[in-house]
Amino acid sequence: MTTSRVLTWDVPASGGYETAWVDCGQGALHARGRAVGTTPEPYWITYELETAEDFVTRRLRVTAETAARTRTVELRHDGRGGWSADGEPLPQLTGALDCDLGLSPLTNTMPVLRHALHRAQGEQEFLMAWVSVPGLVVRPSRQTYTHLARLAGGGGRVRYASGSFRSDLEIDADGFVVHYPQLATRLAQR
């Protein structure tokens, strides 16, 4: 069964907001979203994210607009471990399963759902295809997700770590970020 949701986050880390329209079910996710930010400079972002079975990223297309320029990048995963950006191979990402759009709480969802880290004990290390915002530079990022606790309502607390950065995320029962200290807080739907 596929469920559709609209999620909006206040993103103090960017001085802006993000809204995502998400369809999720049967091990796959499709989302389209928009974000606006003022840090490190004023920008608008639009994106479309598609995953395949087991929430493995297939495609992320992002457009960033600043006062100086508009740039688009299309990141693709071939399903066998290979990645490309705008058709150019990215061998440094070989083996990565997920993308991570900078300053976006949505892209924390895929590894959490794949390993049920919001519900079950465990720690997983990942290589991610990280996309900077608003520059849209793609680079590898090593990240660790660790289940810390179950929360009322079926969600959980999950520690995100990359390099020296750490943050304990509150995740809802469906695997989406509710609160990401130092980055974003989801707004209540009206």
Score class of each variant (00 low, 15 high):
residue 112 V to L: 11
residue 139 R to W: 03
residue 38 T to K: 09
residue 52 A to Y: 02
residue 31 A to D: 07
residue 113 L to D: 07
residue 128 M to A: 10
residue 39 T to C: 08
residue 139 R to H: 12
residue 49 L to Y: 12
residue 173 A to C: 02
residue 138 V to E: 09
residue 126 F to I: 07
residue 21 W to L: 12
residue 84 S to I: 03
residue 167 S to K: 05
residue 91 P to W: 01
residue 178 V to D: 03
residue 180 Y to A: 11
residue 101 L to I: 06
residue 165 F to V: 12
residue 21 W to M: 07
residue 129 A to H: 01
residue 190 R to Y: 09
residue 105 P to Y: 09
residue 147 H to A: 04
residue 31 A to C: 06
residue 68 A to P: 02
residue 110 M to D: 00
residue 159 R to K: 10
residue 149 A to W: 04
residue 76 R to P: 01
residue 163 G to K: 06
residue 135 G to M: 01
residue 77 H to T: 08
residue 168 D to I: 07
residue 147 H to P: 04
residue 164 S to L: 10
residue 52 A to V: 13
residue 146 T to C: 14
residue 25 G to W: 01
residue 36 V to H: 04
residue 1 M to R: 14
residue 87 G to I: 02
residue 106 L to W: 06
residue 176 F to I: 07
residue 160 Y to K: 07
residue 142 R to V: 10
residue 53 E to K: 13
residue 66 T to M: 10
residue 178 V to C: 08
residue 98 D to C: 05
residue 46 T to M: 06
residue 127 L to N: 03
residue 125 E to D: 15
residue 29 L to M: 08
residue 90 L to T: 03
residue 131 V to P: 05
residue 28 A to H: 08
residue 82 G to R: 15
residue 46 T to N: 13
residue 61 R to K: 14
residue 1 M to S: 15
residue 88 E to K: 09
residue 79 G to K: 08
residue 10 D to A: 14
residue 140 P to G: 09
residue 104 S to A: 09
residue 166 R to G: 00
residue 163 G to T: 02
residue 62 V to E: 13
residue 13 A to H: 06
residue 62 V to W: 13
residue 45 I to A: 02
residue 98 D to Y: 14
residue 110 M to A: 14
residue 66 T to P: 07
residue 70 T to V: 13
residue 164 S to Y: 00
residue 188 A to Q: 13
residue 9 W to Q: 14
residue 61 R to S: 12
residue 131 V to H: 03
residue 173 A to G: 05
residue 148 L to Q: 08
residue 185 T to S: 15
residue 44 W to R: 15
residue 101 L to F: 10
residue 98 D to N: 10
residue 30 H to G: 09
residue 136 L to N: 02
residue 7 L to G: 10
residue 23 D to R: 15
residue 177 V to C: 15
residue 134 P to R: 05
residue 128 M to R: 07
residue 32 R to A: 11
residue 182 Q to K: 13
residue 124 Q to P: 00
residue 137 V to P: 00
residue 179 H to V: 12
residue 164 S to Q: 14
residue 188 A to D: 11
residue 99 C to L: 09
residue 121 Q to G: 15
residue 42 P to Y: 01
residue 18 E to M: 03
residue 107 T to L: 07
residue 96 A to N: 07
residue 115 H to T: 08
residue 109 T to Y: 06
residue 88 E to C: 02
residue 27 G to P: 05
residue 137 V to F: 08
residue 106 L to M: 04
residue 175 G to T: 01
residue 53 E to C: 10
residue 121 Q to C: 01
residue 83 W to E: 09
residue 8 T to D: 02
residue 92 Q to K: 05
residue 88 E to F: 06
residue 82 G to E: 15
residue 29 L to K: 01
residue 78 D to V: 03
residue 152 A to M: 05
residue 10 D to K: 12
